Amino acid sequence: MKVYFTFDSRPDLQKQLTEQFPEVEFAFRKGIVDGDLETAEVIVTYGEDLTEEHIFKAHNLKWIFVASAGVEKMPKNAIAERNILVSNVRGIHKKPMTESILAHILAIKRVLPTIYTNQRNKVWDKRGGHPTELNGSTALIIGPGAIGGEIGRLLQAFEVYTIGCNRSGNPADYMNETYRIDDLVEHLPKADIVISVLPSTDETEHLIGYEHFQVMRDNALFMNFGRGNLVETNVLIRALVEKQIGHAVLDVFEEEPLPLDSRLWDMDNVTISPHCSSHSSRYLERSLEIFIPSLKKYLGGDMDIENKMDILRGY
């Protein structure tokens, strides 16, 4: 059986796989190679390089392991038609993403950008920037799953009151309260910090509209770390120009890379992060912690592997 990685990985991780699974033929490439594509039974990908044509060429393909949480760029219909098993690494992003989100919150609350600017300009200003405290704030987390729960856990250590909004309204880990996303407008006015970690699905596209920003506090911090199509760019810009909210921290955008002529680059109430909040030197290690047990199950004929997905639903 052949397992084809469409991206290169660290030699030590390759060695770990080949030694642990001597019965498996592994191919580690940088990109799509037709010969490997046509013979692989399992493909490991970041989810952005496979096309419908590739799926048709992959005659032996039975399982796609996506080393990412999002599958919105994959040829979903072609995969579903072939009934190809798909799983991902949902959950591994929670540590680095939570650290990134917390870092941004603390940086803004404790005016670190101002401190860094003053240092470069050799300015000694003890009163500059008007720092505030995270302690005692209220955070509303849209999508309190694995990542959202970890965000809630650490925020509660700062004595932040956490409100979760999910599809069901059922209680979620590390949320003081949980409500349905359909009732989001009712609960947004309670929040000092609004954090979205939602995936991209048909239901979440443009879920946040202008009316949502209108009911947020005018000093609220809005953070989008899920997918950029949660809100239309022009709607977000309008809300920021009109000061409907205090600041936005954006790790994801409708168009990536963010175009050079985007107004977002020049706005003083926006922090731009280039879709890097989940990056970590340990990313592939954590991916293999999910892939290896799943591969053991697969080789034994057990299809009940971790993070199995409905490719058409996107999760």
Rank of each mutant, 00 (worst) to 15 (best):
M303F: 00
M1L: 08
P274R: 04
G136F: 02
H130M: 04
L154Y: 14
N170Q: 05
P96K: 06
D218R: 14
I141Y: 05
H206C: 02
F5T: 14
E306G: 02
M309Q: 15
H247F: 15
G136M: 13
S9D: 13
H247T: 06
I151S: 10
F7D: 12
H187E: 09
I208E: 06
G209P: 14
N60S: 12
T98W: 01
G31L: 01
V44S: 01
P131Q: 12
M223K: 06
P293N: 03
D202C: 00
M97G: 03
N219R: 10
I195N: 03
M223Y: 05
E38H: 14
I101A: 06
D266F: 09
L50T: 12
I64T: 04
Q119K: 15
V241S: 10
M223H: 06
G91S: 01
T18I: 15
R263E: 11
V160K: 11
E306H: 07
P274E: 10
E255C: 00
S100F: 10
Q244C: 01
D173F: 05
T117I: 02
A27L: 12
S294N: 06
G136L: 02
M303N: 00
Q244K: 13
R286P: 05
Q16H: 11
V194M: 04
R120F: 10
H59T: 00
T132V: 03
T114G: 02
L37D: 15
A80I: 01
I84G: 14
D268R: 05
G47E: 12
T204K: 07
I84W: 11
T51H: 10
V235R: 09
L240W: 03
A69W: 00
T51D: 07
E203L: 10
E41S: 12
L240G: 09
T114Y: 07
G91L: 01
I101V: 15
K297C: 00
L250K: 07
